[in-house]
C-alpha cells in the first residue's frame, strides 16, 4: 500500500470513530506483563474490558515493537496471544474490538467492519479517482515496477491495484520514452484490418474487447523494453488479514470522515437489532455528498479526471444498438 504523505489516519482510528458512534467499548489499556521472549504469552492487562478470544489488538502503538495480535484465550484477568516482539508491561493495548455480544451473538465483528471499510474506501476511490500511482516510480513507497515488454506479445496485465489506466508510455532502450495513443480495437479495425499482424515499436494502446484488467498494444513490440503505466489506484480489499489495524487509509485525511459514514451506513442497514434505516440513509447521503464534494473540488482546481461524468444505466445496453 503506497501512502500519499497526506494520510495519517489508520484503520484502527476509523474503527474507533465507528465504535464511538455505535456506543461500542474500546480497548485502551496497558499490557501489564512484560516479557523478553516472544511467543505465546499470557498477560495481565490493566483492564479486560472489550478483550475476548479472537479480538485483534494493537500492542505498543507507535513503538518499534508495535504489532497486531489476535487473542487466543482469556480469563477474567488475563489474555493470551502469540507475540512476535518482546514488550514492556507499560506497552499500550489498543483495539476497537466491537465486543457487544461477543463471542456468541456479536452485533458486529472486527473483520466485518474492516471489510466494510475496504469496500467503502474503494467505492470512494472509484467514484473520485483522486489517488494516482506511476509504475516504476520511486516516489511512492512501493509501486509495482514497469511492465516488461515481450517481443510479439500484444496483451499485458495491469497491476492489481489499478482502477483505470490513464496513460501508457513505452520505455524502450535507445528510444525516447514516449506516451502511446489511447485508442480502441474498433478504431484500429476501421483503420487497417491487418493491424493484428503488425510488429514494430508500439504506438497505441487499448483496453476494449479484451480480458478484464488487461491492456493491448498496437503494433506488437518487436523489441524488449517496458511499459510505464499511470493509473488511478484502489486500496486493498477487505479479505481477512489483508488490512492491518495500523495500516493507513489511502485517501488524504481531509476526506477520511466520509469513509466513516460509508461504514456506518452499512452497519445500520444490516439485519438485526442495530438496524436503523433513518441513520443509515443519513450516513449514505453524507458519503455521497463527500464523493460529490471531492469530484467538484478536483474540477475546481483543474483536475477533472472525468470520474463525475461516468454514466450509469441500470439497464444493459442492447447488443447492436448504435446510439453513440
Amino acid at each position: 500500500m503506497a501512502y500519499s504523505g497526506l494520510s495519517t489516519i489508520t484503520i484502527e482510528q476509523i474503527l474507533e470513530d465507528v465504535s464511538f458512534t455505535l456506543v461500542e467499548p474500546i480497548v485502551n489499556t496497558t499490557l501489564g506483563t512484560g516479557f523478553a521472549v516472544p511467543g505465546s504469552v499470557a498477560v495481565t492487562p490493566g483492564s479486560m474490558a472489550g478483550i475476548y478470544t479472537g479480538a485483534q489488538l494493537i500492542i505498543a502503538l507507535g513503538q518499534v515493537t508495535q504489532e497486531q495480535v489476535t487473542v487466543t484465550g482469556v480469563t477474567s484477568t488475563t489474555f493470551t496471544a502469540v507475540f512476535l516482539n518482546p514488550h514492556l508491561g507499560t506497552d499500550s493495548v489498543i483495539g476497537a474490538t466491537f465486543p457487544s455480544g461477543q463471542t456468541v451473538n456479536p452485533l458486529f465483528t472486527q473483520n466485518e467492519i474492516i471489510g466494510y471499510l475496504a469496500d467503502v474506501q474503494n467505492d470512494f476511490l472509484l467514484k473520485t479517482r483522486c489517488i494516482f500511482e506511476v509504475t516504476g516510480s520511486d516516489v511512492t513507497p512501493t509501486p509495482p515496477g514497469n511492465i516488461a515488454l515481450v517481443v510479439n506479445n500484444r496483451f499485458y496485465p495491469q497491476p492489481s491495484q489499478v482502477i483505470r489506466v490513464e496513460r501508457v508510455a513505452a520505455v524502450i532502450p535507445g528510444q525516447l520514452t514516449t506516451d502511446l495513443y489511447d485508442t480502441t480495437q474498433s478504431d484500429l479495425d476501421l483503420d487497417n484490418s491487418d493491424w493484428p499482424a503488425n510488429s514494430n515499436l508500439p504506438k497505441r494502446w487499448f483496453r476494449d474487447q479484451i480480458d478484464t484488467a488487461k491492456i493491448g498494444l498496437d503494433p506488437s513490440p518487436n523489441v524488449g523494453g517496458s511499459l510505464e503505466l499511470w493509473y488511478s489506484k484502489r486500496g486493498p480489499t477487505g479479505d481477512v488479514g489483508n488490512l492491518k489495524l495500523y495500516s493507513l487509509l489511502l485517501i488524504p485525511d481531509v476526506m477520511s470522515h466520509y469513509i466513516k459514514y460509508g461504514i456506518l451506513a452499512k452497519c445500520w442497514s444490516k439485519d438485526g437489532e442495530t438496524r436503523d434505516p433513518m441513520r443509515s440513509e443519513y450516513c449514505k447521503k453524507r458519503f455521497e455528498f463527500g464523493v460529490v464534494l471531492v469530484q467538484r473540488f478536483m474540477e475546481g482546481i483543474g483536475l477533472d479526471t472525468g470520474a463525475a461524468q461516468q454514466s450509469f444505466s441500470p439497464m444493459a445496453v442492447p447488443a447492436g444498438s448504435n446510439n453513440g
Binding site: 504523505g5 489517488i131 516516489v139 525516447l176 514516449t178 506516451d179 488524504p252 482546481i301
Partner: peptide, 22 residues
C-alpha cells in the same frame, strides 16, 4: 511535447497535477 519525459534542465518550466497527491 512528445517525449517530454526525457528532457533535462536546471529549472522547472511546467507542472501538472496527477491526482490529489502527486
Amino acid at each position: 511535447l512528445p517525449g517530454w519525459e526525457n528532457d533535462v534542465g536546471n529549472v522547472p518550466d511546467f507542472w501538472f497535477p496527477i491526482g490529489l497527491t502527486l
